[in-house]
């Protein structure tokens, strides 16, 4: 029972990481109609930068702030240089061009940091455990990730639903020609939204760094899981991204933890040993196929699409 609770918390923690990625991706798609495969590259950069800055400065928070700002700047630069020309192109062009960007970023990381995985350290005061319930201890850092993730979700909701910028974002998503006709600088709005998405991806990456290995390809691995989240949640919907992310995070984590022991109660141990991990690794895709079968537009389809 204790193990179940711990794994459930891990599921939430993975879910909020997925959400930070999915929110940026779904905003960019909902507003600019851009499929950005290079979103994972920003996640990777966030993780690498935070690890390096922490090593150099010795201050965890300085490192996080620097990494976040640099990722934001890189994101905005990428938007200005490459992606801006892609908004009017079809999805195939966007997929290929951003695929090209991934190759570029991965190789640049290999040039700067080398091909071996690096390990992001945690400061001593963050590596302890906290008491969640009597008798249940949970790593402090993972708990912090959950809190930050949920906090960002709330802030994002406030931003989109309660501010002028959010109003413009919503308006841009439903009719961008009209918004620019009303005198809004839509180019600037696009750049801002893209920067926001980049910062969220960077945040997800820098928080994930100390939990998973920081390595080339980490961005694509999570990107494809984020696609599953978005397909399940419905493209362009932040609410869908949150629900989808938590569901996928939970199913994936619990599947990896408990599928093998559960199967072992019905199958022979050796059969469970081979079927368990195999089934666990494909569980979220089966879930995606099932959702699509009943709701091809995802659980929370954005109204205008």
């Amino acid at each position: 029972m204790l193990l179940v609770l711990e794994q459930a918390l891990n599921g939430v923690q993975f879910g909020v990481t997925l959400f930070l990625m999915a929110a940026g991706l779904t905003l960019v798609f909902g507003i600019m109609n851009l499929v950005n495969l290079a979103h994972g590259a920003l996640y990777m950069l966030g993780a690498y930068l935070a690890a390096t800055f922490y090593q150099r400065t010795g201050s965890f928070f300085t490192a996080l702030a620097l990494a976040l700002v640099v990722t934001l700047v890189i994101g905005i630069l990428v938007e200005l240089v490459a992606l801006r020309t892609l908004y009017e192109r079809d999805h195939l062009d966007q997929v290929l061009a951003t695929f090209g960007l991934i190759l570029f970023f991965n190789e640049m990381v290999a040039i700067v940091w080398g091909r071996a995985a690096i390990y992001a350290k945690l400061p001593a005061w963050l590596s302890g455990h906290i008491q969640v319930l009597p008798g249940i201890r949970y790593p402090l850092y993972r708990a912090l990730v959950i809190v930050v993730g949920l906090l960002v979700a709330v802030l994002l909701w406030l931003l989109v639903n309660r501010t002028r910028l959010g109003m413009l974002i919503r308006a841009g998503a439903s009719n961008r020609t009209m918004v620019s006709a009303l005198g809004v600088n839509i180019r600037l709005l696009y750049t801002l939204v893209f920067g926001l998405g980049a910062a969220l991806a960077g945040l997800a990456g820098l928080m994930a760094g100390p939990i998973y290995a920081v390595q080339i390809g980490m961005g694509e691995e999570i990107l494809i899981q984020v696609f599953v989240v978005i397909v399940i949640g419905g493209i362009g919907s932040i609410k869908g991204a949150l629900v989808g992310a938590l569901v996928v995070g939970m199913v994936d984590t619990l599947g990896r933890a408990f599928l093998r022991p559960t199967l072992a109660t019905v199958l022979s141990p050796s059969a469970a040993d081979s079927a368990g991990p195999a089934l666990a690794s494909v569980l979220i895709y089966i879930l995606m196929a099932a959702v699509l079968f009943f709701r091809p537009q995802g659980l929370f389809p954005a109204a205008s699409r």
Binding site: H91, I224, V231, I235, S281, V282, M288, A289, L292, P296
Partner: peptide, 24 residues
Amino acid sequence: RTSGVYFIMITLAFAQMLYYLGNS
């Protein structure tokens, strides 16, 4: 059953599913 960007993401996701299956 879907089209556009959903189709791109779903075909990618299924291929990745088989990739992980092969890995495990």
